[in-house]
Design a protein around this nucleic acid. Structure first.
Lengths: 234, 234
DNA sequence: GTTTCTACTGACAAAAGCTGTCAGTGACGG
DNA sequence: CCGTCACTGACAGCTTTTGTCAGTAGAAAC
């Protein structure tokens, strides 16, 4: 049921965004032509779904539109399970616990024919604890510091052995497959710097708070990186 | 959207009933053949709608369908989002699409204060497509072969350059952070063998099916590995 | 035991629907 | 005026869906 699935995806996409989405964005996202998006929008409207659109602006869906209850097909359940296993193995332990908890909640409401996919999923992510705690060193403290916007003091040792102590403003964490890096504003250099978590020798969260701005934020850093490399980081 | 409308009507009809409805009753009500009703019921079931049915009795919708939306807290939403990003970046493209779709569904039913976490989550997983398609080579075909229990013919090149052609029985895929390996029963060696996906030069799924047994299955392989290493693979 | 009935599945040809491409329209801005 | 953009209509080709019919399995009746 390809088209019906897509219509449902359209409603969730349009409902999830604060800002509008253009037909071009929707067609890119869903892998169909813009003409098909126009048809889909019309179909939804004819079916009573309150899609709002303005020429030259884009579409959105009223936040008050009630979606049907949550359903996942087999593919989606497998993807969610694989994601939870990846987080459990390659995220920090707290993150892993939350991933497992959320999966238990999802499994609990699945119909019987999907419920036992966890036990039988042939997509494994081994937990080799020593290796993985090495790569997620300090992750939990840093996630909290990012959220609370607290400055952090670190002792860092570069690959070549050179050590430094810095006070930084943590903005985000990036997973590169095994290795995590921290994106931060470094007061020592007065610029963005990235630090591999496994090379942070010591870390202390300070009481001191920081502010972000248009020119000092994770999004700003990502725009700079995209301009340099043209790569997609989400 | 005749069929999509009808599927929606089916869920509505089945949900509002205390008693079951037969395929004949449903076909009369919706003006289609019974064969079409059987197909619709199967489609709904495959999409994760919990339709229950008994031979000679009829259909109804599981009480699960009427449960309140799942409730996730902020930590769980973040863990799910990180998992989806990891799958999108380090799983194969199809798996990534399913991860994103399932996340949109979850986000759509969240309260407003949690819905926009996707846009703001400071935990990133870059998509560097060339690298990641390298590591997930043949993943989609292999997932299908595992599920359908179809033998596969591969040309494999080891790290030292030695090449071989084998017919194998694919049992599972393992993610080691960047690298994926295939666990298979190798007919050439009459034993389990693992193969890095990025070293499979060529792969063809055969029509030929295989059986698993207590002594030839992913679970058996994992028990052997645990006895050797004592590590936790889930 | 056999026969009949019912619910369901697979296969097939025909019908219906869907898709992307392309031309055209209207609104807007320069 | 021209160019751009969002959208609509038309069309050929492709994909999906449909109803019919034969077959299967299980249960009930004889």
């Amino acid at each position: 049921m390809l088209r019906a699935e897509r219509l449902f995806q359209l409603t969730t996409l349009l409902r999830n965004r604060r800002t509008v989405l253009t037909a071009k964005q929707l067609s890119d996202h869903l892998g169909v032509s813009e003409r098909t998006i126009y048809r889909d929008i019309q179909s939804l409207s004819l079916s009573g779904v309150p899609v709002e659109g303005e020429a030259g602006v884009g579409y959105r869906l009223s936040r008050h539109y009630q979606l049907p209850p949550l359903m996942f097909d087999r593919h989606e359940v497998e993807a969610l399970l694989l994601g939870a296993r990846m987080v459990a193995s390659w995220g920090d332990p707290e993150m892993g616990r939350h991933a497992k908890q959320s999966m238990q909640k999802i499994l609990a409401v699945l119909p019987d024919n999907l419920r036992h996919h966890d036990e039988n999923l042939p997509l494994l992510v081994p937990q080799i604890n020593e290796a993985q705690h090495f790569y997620t060193a300090h992750s939990q403290a840093l996630r909290s510091a990012i959220r609370e916007r607290q400055r952090v003091e670190i002792d860092y040792q570069r690959e070549d052995g050179e050590a430094s102590t810095r006070t930084i403003e943590s903005l985000g964490l990036i997973f590169w497959g095994k290795v995590w890096t921290l994106v931060a504003w470094c007061q020592l250099r007065n610029d963005y710097r990235t630090f591999r978590l496994d090379r942070i020798q010591y870390l202390r969260v300070l009481e001191d708070k920081f502010e972000t701005s248009d020119n000092k934020s994770l999004n700003h850093y990502l725009k700079l990186m995209e301009n340099q490399c043209g790569q997609n980081t989400n």
